[in-house]
Design a protein around this nucleic acid. Structure first.
Lengths: 237, 237
DNA sequence: TGTACATCAGTGAACGCGCGTTCACTGATGTAC
DNA sequence: TGTACATCAGTGAACGCGCGTTCACTGATGTAC
């Protein structure tokens, strides 16, 4: 057992590699947080990790791959928060649970503004998100869709009259329902997507300075707005 | 009259200066549209205008000042569209007028994605917007606030029951009312700000790829969502 | 109207910087016999 | 257990690039008398 290499966390080399990969990401994440994604430089990260710049290429084949790793981490981080908020609020009303998830997303965004900007702000110029980001990117929306389903099942979210929709949109909604929100009627899906847009729009307004000199207490304002938006989910208009 | 220099468009030098300033902005705007704000380079613009890079400094004291000029132009461009949409829809219902302004903002955004990102996306790293942008930045919000006032005056936007608000938010709203929307009650202001957030959030979701593989017909989806949001303005919840 | 001087646009060279990426290399770690 | 070879992390120099900004200058345009 001492000589045979165990399958998990095998050799010293392997452990070192794993640790250094994390270390590079950690430093890169901090650089991102301090200077924004456009200023993220392989060389600066290498300097701080204590490597020569070319050594980073043993870990990430290019700057874009490092960026991709950070994007995935960011999606996972906010996804985790949203999932935690969902679990923690399990005994409350469906609209309160939505609100709780929304607050969690905003709290994460405020705590990690550059990472938020990286995934929900303008796209990094010249960077195309690869397939691998799709899964992590779906975590928050999936939480919200699940809550929509719960609310419909419990009778809290009432469909009301179905909105007039184009055929394409109807089929888009049907597909969305099939993959993630069975039994959620179009009217409720539509309202859910509205609140989702409002959540991100509200965070953007706040974080990117558009409420400067207009709103003083961002926390109170956000909670007011989102509380009303989440109540709106329960109405069958 | 031939020898004395008239006050408007005075000397040849003056005219040349005005024209070249516009030419530089025009080229810079195109570069912005093609490569994004981070990639906007004085040297590249100078090259295309046919100047040596240092000559641009006769027109803009630094890259940031050029960027500021573009930001102001962008705010003015979208502001103009919004104002035009407002005027053009003068004979329609208040919610239809809101919708019309929202559609105008989105249409401008889709036609000028990088300019949109410049003003409503993540802030340019290392750039702080100067005072001079405040006025142009207010044009669209002012249009919407005006329409809120109209809708209240005509009885289309009903306050309904006043939401529970913190003292600070109440006073923020009061200030907003004083500067731009007299007689608009808190409940309507709150709904208006919600729709504003939803508008920007929706455009971001669409433009930054978050609806990829979810929504196929963006136009139809946007119109559906905004139509419902604007109807929401009329309700006294 | 003509001349002397002041203003200003544009030039070209230079400074100093940092970037992403490649490549031949050294030396340590891991593996097969 | 010991040896020979293969794998791989990290080095250091280099390539080629573009950037923002400064500065002393030339020559054209404008102005005052």
């Amino acid at each position: 057992m001492a000589t045979t290499t165990p399958n998990a966390s095998r050799t010293a080399r392997d452990r070192a590699r794993r640790e250094l990969t994390e270390e590079i990401k950690r430093v890169a994440r901090r650089h991102l947080a301090e200077h924004g994604s456009a200023a993220l430089s392989l060389r600066a990260v290498a300097r701080e990790v204590g490597m020569v710049s070319s050594a980073v290429y043993r870990y990430f084949p290019s700057r874009d791959d490092l960026l991709t790793a950070l994007i995935i981490d960011a999606y996972d981080a906010v996804g985790e928060r949203a999932e935690a908020a969902e679990s923690a609020s399990r005994d409350r009303g469906a609209d309160a649970r939505w609100l709780s998830v929304c607050e969690a997303v905003r709290a994460w965004a405020l705590a990690n503004p550059h990472e938020y900007a990286l995934i929900f702000g303008s796209p990094v110029p010249g960077y195309a998100a690869p397939e691998a980001t799709i899964g992590p990117a779906s975590r928050v929306p999936l939480v919200l869709l699940r809550l929509l389903g719960d609310g419909v099942a419990s009778g809290e979210f009432v469909a009301g009259k179905t909105p007039a929709m184009s055929r394409t949109t109807r089929s888009d909604f049907a597909q969305l329902r099939r993959t993630a929100a069975p039994a959620v009627p179009d009217a409720v899906l539509s309202r859910g997507l509205s609140v989702w847009a409002q959540l991100l729009g509200g965070i953007n307004l706040e974080m990117f300075g558009h409420l400067h000199n207009v709103i003083r207490d961002y926390d109170a304002f956000f909670t007011l707005q989102m509380r009303r938006a989440c109540e709106f989910l329960t109405q069958g208009v």
